[in-house]
Structure formats: structure tokens, C-alpha cells
């Protein structure tokens, strides 16, 4: 990915900043400027809480290029408490079992590096919730 793309995506990647629809209140992630629920214009920024639960999950053993050093690693679809589904890596799982419905929270982690000399790329992952809620 180009440096310019990493730069453009930094807000949503670092902190799960999406949009809220001013017409139907839908929370939107990733931001797309058009509400997927009512089709109206939606450009107002919205800071997601980062809390959610595992909707589905799997473990990657054959990683795409750039991620081979991290195998095996878990990936999940997370249902954010505000509604949207987000696909992301799980991290810091340790020996905790991951199941559908496991409470998770967003953390900002290193997603990878653009080669040996390129920029470091940071973004959201999810980990089992640190404190019970």
C-alpha cells in the first residue's frame, strides 16, 4: 500500500473513527459518506467506543505476504456495540479461549511494516476485554 493511503486512513485505523448518519442515527464503519441503512449523506465523524464481541473467528496459518512472521494468528469479525461488523486481527489472546460472544476491546497495534526500510503501519486490533463489564 502507498504511503498516501496509510496517511489517509490513519484516523479510522488508529482510533476506530467512523461516521454517524444525521438522518437515521446509524453508526458507520468504515466511513463511506453515504449511510448504508437509509442511503442519505453521512459525513459527521463518530468515535466508536472500541467495545464489541466476537461474531465469528478463525486462525490464519498460511498468511498473506507481509504477515508470515506472525503465524499462527487469530482473525475475527467483531460486532461493535454500536452495530457495525469489523474484520480485524485478535491479539493478546494468551491462553484465554475465544468463542462467539467473547467480549473484546479495540487496541492500536502494529499491523506491519512496508519492507525493511519502509514505514511502520499501525491500526486497530481487538483483544479479550481487560476488565469484565
Amino acid at each position: 500500500m502507498e504511503t498516501s493511503q496509510h496517511w489517509r486512513l490513519r484516523k479510522q485505523r488508529y482510533a476506530l473513527v467512523g461516521e454517524v448518519c444525521p438522518h437515521c442515527e446509524s453508526k458507520i464503519f468504515p466511513p463511506r459518506d453515504i449511510c448504508p441503512d437509509c442511503g442519505e449523506d453521512a459525513r459527521e465523524m463518530y468515535q466508536f467506543s472500541g467495545r464489541g464481541e466476537v461474531y465469528s473467528h478463525t486462525t490464519v496459518y498460511q498468511a498473506p505476504s507481509g504477515h508470515a512472521e506472525n503465524v499462527p494468528y487469530p482473525v475475527a469479525i467483531v460486532r461493535l456495540e454500536e452495530g457495525p461488523l469489523v474484520t480485524a486481527q485478535l491479539t493478546d489472546v494468551g491462553d484465554q479461549p475465544i468463542e462467539i460472544g467473547t467480549p473484546v476491546e479495540m487496541v492500536t497495534r502494529k499491523l506491519g511494516a512496508d519492507g525493511e526500510r519502509g514505514m511502520l503501519v499501525y491500526g486497530y486490533k481487538f483483544r479479550p476485554a481487560l476488565v469484565e463489564r
Binding site: 488508529y14 486481527q89 492500536t108 486490533k125
Partner: peptide
């Protein structure tokens, strides 16, 4: 640190 952690990620949390 885990594989995806460094001073930037730890500082953020």
C-alpha cells in the same frame, strides 16, 4: 512485548 507491540502502541494505551 507481543509481536505487534512497540513504544508507540504501548504509549497509546
Amino acid at each position: 512485548t507481543g509481536l505487534d507491540e512497540d513504544v508507540i502502541t504501548m504509549s497509546i494505551e
